[in-house]
């Protein structure tokens, strides 16, 4: 019972070593390999997901920044457009004012001319009338008195007109 048999002892040692190697080949190595593979896969997936998230974050930032830029651009465009429109408006109004002034001046000058012409015509007509009247008067009644009064009157009228 308590005897130690060298052959059986060595046999057990050899058995244990064989069992160790066999279990290592058939049990531990394959299972550990597959677990390591799974771990690697999971790690890769996690890394991938993190990278994708980072990418999405970058895109989001890019979008928001470009959106802000567009907003800014829009505001600038609106500003310049408004300014231009203002200038245009001012120019048109100024032009219109100038034109109106020109028209007014021309009209005034025209009216003046016409007035002068009418006055001249009237003067001429009056002179004719006077001459005609004088002729009539000369033709019907003669005398120094009449001549004299006629000239006086004429001269007086002429003087008034001058």
């Amino acid at each position: 019972m308590l005897s130690v048999d060298p052959f059986n002892l060595i046999c057990t040692v050899v058995n244990l070593l064989i069992l160790f190697v066999a279990l290592r080949i058939f049990l531990f190595k394959p299972v550990q390999k597959i677990i390591a593979e799974r771990q690697a896969q999971a790690d890769a997936q996690l890394k991938d997901a993190a990278a994708k998230q980072q990418e999405a974050q970058n895109l989001k930032e890019q979008y928001s920044s470009s959106l802000a830029k567009a907003e800014e651009e829009k505001r600038q465009l609106l500003n310049t457009a408004r300014k231009e429109a203002d200038e245009q408006y001012q120019k048109i109004v100024d032009e219109a004012k100038a034109q109106a002034k020109q028209i007014e001046e021309r009209a005034t000058a025209d009216a003046e001319n016409r007035k002068n012409r009418i006055l001249k015509n009237t003067e001429k007509e009056i002179a004719d009338m006077v001459v005609a009247a004088a002729e009539k008067m000369v033709g019907s009644q003669s005398g120094v008195k009449i001549d004299r009064s006629l000239y006086d009157e004429f001269l007086g009228k002429a003087g008034e007109e001058q």
């Binding site: 048999d5 052959f7 059986n8 057990t12 058995n15 069992l19 066999a22 279990l23 058939f26 049990l27």
Partner: peptide, 20 residues
């Protein structure tokens, strides 16, 4: 002489390896 323990060990080994 080959003891019973050795033979049983072989059986255990066979079973363990087969199951693995």
């Amino acid at each position: 002489p080959v003891h019973e323990s050795i033979v049983v060990t072989w059986i255990i080994m066979a079973v363990l390896i087969l199951i693995s």
